[in-house]
Design a protein around this nucleic acid. Structure first.
Lengths: 242, 242
DNA sequence: ACAAAAGTGTTAGGCCTACACCCATGA
DNA sequence: TCATGGGTGTAGGCCTAACACTTTTGT
């Protein structure tokens, strides 16, 4: 049969397909968002459903993916146009039958992006931001992957200064607090929160204080990475208790 | 060619081989140990080198692995004869070229076993316990996987009562302390350590107190799982600060 | 009886929480 | 000038770290 010719990769033992999927989080100032893509209406699996962006490990061609993280980064850039963003592997999803077509092992990553910077991907697929905690009915086992990502993000925030990845370069203390409250689903005392953050000594005050809207304009801050590294060294580690 | 017949699995796109590897930790009362296996002297890759036990995802046959964790459990049982032990995925290793023969994606797990319970595997391979922090020159990128596992174990101990997995059913407070010191590479004050552990209320005292060796015989304890679950619920979560 | 190992209690300081007041700005 | 939102300071309680004494047992 001529159609057999397309199966040109041969192995002695069965091999699964391997993908990197990305849970891309953003924050619009109100709630945590996740970027999803709509699957093709003619797909053999979950046609028309919303799904986490992801793609197969590229093994041949001019630029094979060096590892699963690079694969995820490539996917992320295709969807958002962004490079050099925070991204991290957090789990492997490999249950038999999770993809009806063939056995697929998925390495899940979560990424934190400044939502304002996202222009729109090079990919033709329809992509859209959804409230991260409200989506359901995603394709495959992506509901579970998303839940796990949210849970991992909540943990990570205690050990890495990841909040700033979701905010604009310059932000205010109330903004930061609202973000933390959105991620952790709790409310903080305004004064204690500021005290705790300031005690970390990882923010720089930004001089300009635009006088425009609101009763009183809050200070502007910027995350100071050098200072963070210095403090991390000094206290050997980073920890933020809530 | 007749030899082509052995490559009987065909795919439209290239697929990597996928394995689960296990970092199996044990504790002999003195130091943290890791179980390694010696590779075949005739292997095409790293012949005769010591390596982490691991195996390919089983996809065909009567009992395919349901997922990577089951694959790791199967491997673990083959090496140690043990079922129902603590095991957890902690990372994916996928760098191009990490296996010289073909592209291999490895899902790494770490397991905690009571070293006294390990009889010896059903596998014919030579297996041996090594001091976990001293081994090097392992096959593939297993040096790095082991380092990462040690680091993950250190983190995990703050959020899960994993120490007991490495000790005999019945143990003493000094034993527990020495284990924690071995894992975290620090020294604790005896009194504060006992106080902190007791405050968790997850141990049961065991009546028998054998009078044999040593100046004074310490109390015997047992990890009380029901009590742990109760306390975890009550305090929503488990945390052990050091 | 003495040395070694293990159980127990007390105190001081630091960190977190709760809470109140003052200030700046736009309406 | 008033309401709204934001910056700052202080007191109390809890938790943790530092530390000393007593008890048991084998020699």
């Amino acid at each position: 049969m001529a159609s057999e010719k397309k199966y040109k990769y041969h192995y002695e033992y069965p091999h699964p397909a391997v993908t990197s999927d990305c849970v891309i989080f953003g924050y619009d100032g109100k709630e945590l968002k996740v970027l999803l893509i709509k699957r093709d209406d003619n797909s053999d699996a979950y046609p028309g459903a919303w799904a986490l962006p992801g793609g197969f490990l590229r093994m041949d061609g001019d630029e094979p993916d060096f590892n699963m993280l690079e694969c995820a980064r490539r996917e992320l850039e295709e969807e958002t146009g962004l490079k050099d963003v925070y991204i991290r592997e957090f789990g492997v999803y490999s249950d038999l039958g999770r993809d009806p077509r063939e056995r697929v092992i998925t390495v899940a990553h979560f990424a934190l992006v400044k939502i304002q910077d996202v222009k729109g991907g090079s990919d033709a697929q329809e992509a859209k931001w959804f409230p991260a905690r409200e989506v359901s009915q995603l394709a495959f086992d992506h509901d579970r992957i998303l839940r796990d990502a949210l849970s991992r993000l909540r943990e990570t925030i205690h050990f890495e200064p990841v909040g700033f990845e979701l905010l604009p370069e310059v932000f205010t203390m109330p903004q930061l607090q609202e973000l933390y409250e959105a991620i952790l689903e709790v409310k903080f005392d305004r004064r204690n929160f500021a005290k705790k953050i300031n005690a970390l000594e990882i923010l720089s005050e930004v001089g300009d204080r635009p006088a425009n809207a609101g009763p009183r304009t809050p200070f502007h801050y910027r995350f100071n990475k050098e200072q963070y590294e210095k403090m991390k060294m000094k206290r050997n580690g980073f920890r933020l208790e809530f």
